[in-house]
Design a protein around this nucleic acid. Structure first.
Lengths: 214, 214
DNA sequence: ACGCTTGGATAGTCCCGCTATCCCAGGAAG
DNA sequence: CTTCCTGGGATAGCGGGACTATCCAAGCGT
């Protein structure tokens, strides 16, 4: 299919697709001649993923490029590829090491990982952006006066572990490693808005049950 | 305390505090005379909340203003205040009603709410931005080929309900309604990065356990 | 009295995600 | 062959968002 058709079927404007091509989020089409390029279903799939990441997941374009670069890197093993893709995602602020709230948060997070028995996560913690963003969020909660300790959070960790297990089960129903990693990334990015929405709905629901519509 | 001290203690630059004052995220200090204003602990607390919303939660300034407006509106009952504040938060794209994936997603979400017995959420669904953002995310998962139905999601809904219950329990340990709503908003915004980080760590952990470091 | 700080107002900066314009090279129609 | 039209690449511009830098006038301290 041509650019025009790709645009038609994906609902993304031609100008925007060109922009994504420039930014390296999409591989160029197969050049038929100097003025024509041909795109296939693979491009369409990828374009939908890109849109989902950017629009629904709110991932910046530069980050999406990096993530997809890892997804496509089939020189790596599955775990590393997945890890690399997930590590490229967060982009929150870095922890301010001078802040005592950060130090306290770090201690609690470490205790949490220990009590959950997440050995790999503990080993990789000093390097992991995800770990750092967790520390930042916990430090913020501390500063606002929330009690937040490992005991309190452990059940949530277990829950998220259950979620992750379900998702990897689903991932394994696909064959191609690239597709698997793509799915995992899509889950990471799109499943989170789902959880967030469920969380907020639950909060409203529970508040209404406890206090009624005053 | 003066502006300079407020800046010092919060770690936010004077210029930025002035910006927040202009934007109405912070109430002006008590004017002592034509050139001096006095701020108190309340301002500091609020400033920390604002920073957390914006930096950690990634909430746009305009949205934060709206949310805090509801938090401060003590003419409303607790449930409504909390609901209004949470409704102002999401800011995702609106669902495209022409899209069949959106229609399918809506059906599944409605079935989910029914099976969870979230009556209030069901009643308010047509109006709720949170509900709409859930539909958008689910539709996106559908388009990317994820199986997503009410049965699959119900356990996650239950989990989020548990989370919400714990948070409201904590909220009730505070007395002032404004503080309670503030806490709830902080939870909604800061607890979510925590869950997200836990989710990603769990995903890495589980992948490493299943596949090793290939 | 005079410099120094404080707070308010205004304009400017930087980044990001597009979007509009221009240009040239085919291919199709006459 | 010529002419016109379309597809694709390159470049520059736009609009919004979050700050940030500069200026200014009014006190306050010595």
């Amino acid at each position: 299919m041509r650019l025009a058709e790709l645009s038609e079927r994906s609902g993304v404007s031609i100008a925007t697709i060109k922009y994504y091509l420039r930014e390296g989020l999409l591989s160029p089409g197969r050049r038929v001649n100097a003025t024509t390029a041909e795109y296939d279903e693979e491009h369409l799939r990828r374009l939908r993923l890109v849109r989902a990441l950017i629009q629904v997941g709110g991932v910046p374009v530069a980050t999406a490029r990096e993530v997809l670069g890892h997804v496509d890197d089939d020189s790596l093993g599955r775990t590393i590829r997945l890890g690399a893709a997930l590590w490229a995602l967060p982009q929150g602020p870095e922890p301010d090491e001078g802040d005592p709230a950060v130090a306290a948060a770090r201690t609690e997070v470490d205790r949490l990982l220990e009590s959950l028995g997440w050995e790999t996560a503990r080993e990789l913690a000093p390097l992991s952006p995800v770990y750092r963003s967790l520390v930042v969020a916990v430090a913020s909660l501390h500063r606002l006066g929330h009690r937040w300790d490992a005991e309190l959070m452990a059940p949530y960790g277990e829950l998220m572990h259950q979620v992750a297990r379900r998702q990897l089960d689903f991932m394994e129903t696909h064959d191609s490693p690239t597709e698997q990693v793509e799915l995992a990334v899509a889950s990471a990015v799109l499943f989170e808005p789902v959880l967030r929405a469920l969380h907020r709905l639950a909060q409203e629901e529970e508040a209404a049950r406890r206090y009624g519509i005053e």
